[in-house]
């Protein structure tokens, strides 16, 4: 049953010749919990977001070898979320899509429910251009339908974060972790402005959790006295740092 579900949710991988000279050397799939076999402790973060399967490919193009990892997440938000917490110090960002980040040797992007990383040990600009072509081919392979539209509408790299639990929050904005220490079921959109000041909207599973969260004495948290929280609905509230 689980296998059937995975097949229904499958996506298209790169194949030989899809861009001139492309050869797929190997490929391996890591569904569900087996991600522990691939990255052991690091898999917790992916599982927290809602992870379905990962496929790794080793490909060669123009005599350069690339490692590609396709992470299929449960939702578009989860794919963006896992991208958002891995995005850092991009040398080039958001030029192919609204959420892609490039540094020499490494490109990552999200596309619908896919979070994709491309790695190559070569730092040259030519390799960066090949990564662009590989990324574009992957996106063209997996056209987004209206139902799978992207969860952000402007370049978001390094500005917006989406988290679905405490592991994601510790990666996006660890200084807010104490607020959420006693809460497990929530999702949170975070925005970080140019002065590294965060604001966010959190949604809880239950109205009780939301009420309990908003009633916390935020001034009691060490070094975090300038937090303002306002409840917006039974299960949602907005958190702002006034300044730091």
């Amino acid at each position: 049953m689980k296998l059937l579900a995975l097949l229904l949710l499958s996506f298209n991988l790169l194949t030989d010749g899809q861009i001139p000279g492309l050869t797929v050397n190997s490929q391996k799939e890591w569904p569900g919990q087996s991600l522990y076999g691939f990255m052991n402790g690091g898999s917790e973060l992916f599982l927290e977001y809602g992870f379905l399967t990962m496929t790794e490919q080793n490909v060669t193009v123009s005599d350069k070898t690339f490692g590609i990892e396709y992470y299929l997440m449960e939702t578009e938000e989860a794919a963006f979320g896992i991208y958002s917490v891995h995005c850092f110090k991009c040398q080039r960002a958001d030029s192919l899509t609204l959420s892609e980040c490039y540094i020499p040797t490494y490109m990552q992007f999200c596309h619908g429910k896919l979070y994709v990383t491309i790695t190559c040990s070569d730092r040259s600009p030519a390799t960066g251009e090949l990564m662009n072509r590989l990324a574009t081919a992957i996106m063209n392979n997996n056209p987004l339908t209206e139902e799978k539209k992207f969860p952000v509408e402007r370049p978001a790299s390094g500005k917006d974060y989406f988290v679905m639990g405490n592991l994601g929050l510790s990666a996006a904005n660890i200084s807010w972790c104490p607020f959420f220490e006693h809460f497990g079921h929530y999702s949170l959109w975070l925005n970080c402005d140019g002065d590294n000041v965060f604001s966010g909207e959190v949604r809880f599973l239950t109205a009780e959790d939301c009420k309990r969260f908003c009633e916390q004495d935020f001034s009691a948290f060490q070094n975090e006295s300038r937090i303002r929280v306002s409840q917006c609905s039974e299960t949602e509230c907005v958190i702002r740092e006034i300044n730091r």
Binding site: L47, E48, Y49, G50, E74, T75, E76, E77, A78, K149, F150, P151, V152, E153, R154, A156, K159, D160, M164, G165, N166, L167, H182, F183, G184, H185, Y186, S187, W189, N191, D193, S199, E201, R203, L205, V238, R240
Partner: peptide, 25 residues
């Protein structure tokens, strides 16, 4: 929040099923 631009697609959080909130208490 007063954040410039409409960064996140409308209704996206609503589109996140609560069942997808994997994190356990």
């Amino acid at each position: 929040l007063g954040v410039s631009g409409a960064g996140i697609a409308a209704g996206s959080l609503a589109a996140s099923p609560l069942s997808a909130m994997q994190s356990l208490a």
